[in-house]
């Protein structure tokens, strides 16, 4: 793709997202609250999970369209969750797009690894909840 051509920005109506399920694994409850609010407004169905281990279990047993994954979550870390979800033996039928949401700066090489395995990588402080929803709307 010629990068000078900007992809057309489509405003996705809430109706289109109505059937889309989001799992938000995030241990900071206020951030969870803000994300749930912004996503619900755009029609997404949001499941919020504070605990890493429970989050992984949910991701493996239930089907989601998008998983927002914080890297610093209790019990099982975000990186461990990411690895488990990308392991076809542990998670045979994963359909969800995995978006890493973090405020922690990683060492460049670790970050590269994470980015390779995930479908998106977001620094939470860089985006307001609305901007995050816009980002998710534009995921193919």
């Amino acid at each position: 793709m010629n990068p000078t051509e900007k992809p057309e920005e489509k405003i996705t109506p809430a109706v289109l997202n109505a059937s889309k399920k989001v799992l938000c694994i995030e241990d900071e409850p206020f951030i969870g609250e803000l994300y749930t609010r912004a996503l619900s407004k755009e029609g997404y169905e949001v499941k919020l999970e504070i605990d890493g281990a429970k989050g992984l279990e949910l991701a493996q047993t239930d089907q989601f369209d998008i998983i927002l994954l914080d890297l610093m979550v209790p019990n099982v870390t975000g990186i461990e969750i990411l690895r488990a979800l990308r392991d076809p033996q542990k998670t045979p039928h994963l359909k969800a797009k995995i978006i890493i949401t973090t405020n922690l700066e990683q060492r460049e090489d670790i970050k590269e690894d994470i980015e390779k395995q995930a479908d998106g990588y977001i620094v939470k402080a860089e985006l307001t909840p609305k901007q995050l929803v816009e980002f998710l709307n534009n995921i193919p």
């Binding site: 900071e28 206020f30 951030i31 803000l34 609010r37 912004a38 610093m72 405020n103 922690l104 700066e105 990683q106 060492r107 620094v123 939470k124 402080a125 307001t128 909840p129 609305k130």
Partner: peptide
């Protein structure tokens, strides 16, 4: 030197979390 960076990275993380919230609630 890398450990010094880790310290800064951790501090930055601690600053970013309230910032995320501030920006989020201001927007809301």
């Amino acid at each position: 030197d890398e450990q010094a960076i880790s310290f800064i990275a951790l501090s930055v993380h601690e600053l970013r979390t309230p910032l995320t919230l501030l920006r989020g609630y201001i927007e809301a």
